[in-house]
């Protein structure tokens, strides 16, 4: 690929005492149940999967199969009902709500299908949002702002810094979201149908950006319905009824028992 967006410092986790150093994230027999009154929805029913550093994974599967649930768990937005989730060497189930916030802020960048920008903020302010929640709550410095402007430039929005989201096209909004996801230089990028609302040209541009991020060493896990999108990932996971049905490269799928 052409230019890099922002090289990621090589993960230093390798060789750390907890033995999970080689992986960005690991799931062990993870279950997730939702309680709707008497009724229990078993959204995940024992998922085990490892994501090595620098992985690029597309999660596919029919609607309701548990893709979003899995992604939310990976993003530390929620804890498993049972099983273990090890993120950056830490057991998520043992962390407090504030710890999870810090992890989301530092380790993870989210990209959503509906962009999820804050409507009353400008492009620049949207990119800055994660900076407000850095550990220690440092003030936003001039260098920070410079970096945000740099990132905006990298996603092709240098001249739109003062625009508000409603003044941007879907593709541009998703670029803002990508810049925002990168601002704290996270190791993992989680994307839930990032091109779901975009036309195919824009889809291509966004996917190219994600590809670059992966080449820089970031782990990318994305949910998608499009084979054209999934094809760009290093490997594909198909989910079915809260379980991983098959895993592997396109065309050489292996059934998971």
């Amino acid at each position: 690929m052409s230019t890099t967006i922002e090289p990621l410092p090589q993960p230093s986790g390798a060789g750390s005492p907890d033995d999970h150093g080689g992986y960005a994230a690991r799931l062990l027999e993870v279950h997730k149940n939702y309680h709707l009154g008497e009724h229990v929805v078993r959204a995940l029913r024992g998922v085990s999967i490892d994501f090595p550093h620098g992985d690029y994974v597309a999660i596919m599967g029919s609607s309701g199969s548990g893709k979003s649930t899995l992604l939310n768990l990976l993003g530390a937005l929620d804890r498993p009902s049972s099983g273990e989730y090890i993120l950056g060497g830490q057991y998520v189930s043992q962390l407090t709500d504030d710890d999870l916030s810090a992890i989301r802020n530092q380790l993870i960048g989210f990209i959503f299908q509906s962009y999820n920008l804050i409507p009353q903020y400008t492009v620049l302010e949207n990119i800055q949002v994660p900076l407000n929640y850095r550990p220690g709550r440092r003030d936003i410095s001039a260098e920070d702002t410079e970096r945000c402007e740099f990132l905006a430039g990298q996603v092709g929005l240098a001249d739109r810094l003062d625009h508000r989201p409603f003044q941007l096209s879907g593709g541009q909004q998703q670029r803002v979201a990508i810049a925002r996801a990168l601002v704290n230089n996270p190791e993992i990028i989680l994307a839930d149908e990032p091109t779901g609302n975009l036309d195919s040209t824009t889809e291509g541009e966004i996917m190219q950006l994600l590809g670059q991020l992966n080449e820089e060493g970031r782990t990318i896990i994305m949910v998608t319905h499009e084979t054209s999108v999934a094809r760009r990932a290093k490997r594909q996971i198909i989910m079915k009824d809260g379980l991983i049905a098959s895993e592997g490269l396109f065309g050489v799928e292996t059934e998971v028992k």
Partner: peptide, 16 residues
């Protein structure tokens, strides 16, 4: 509500 969800996803604590 959605904005709150976004902020939480981006690392805001409850206290934030």
């Amino acid at each position: 509500t959605r904005e709150i969800g976004i902020r939480r996803a981006l690392g805001a604590r409850q206290s934030d």
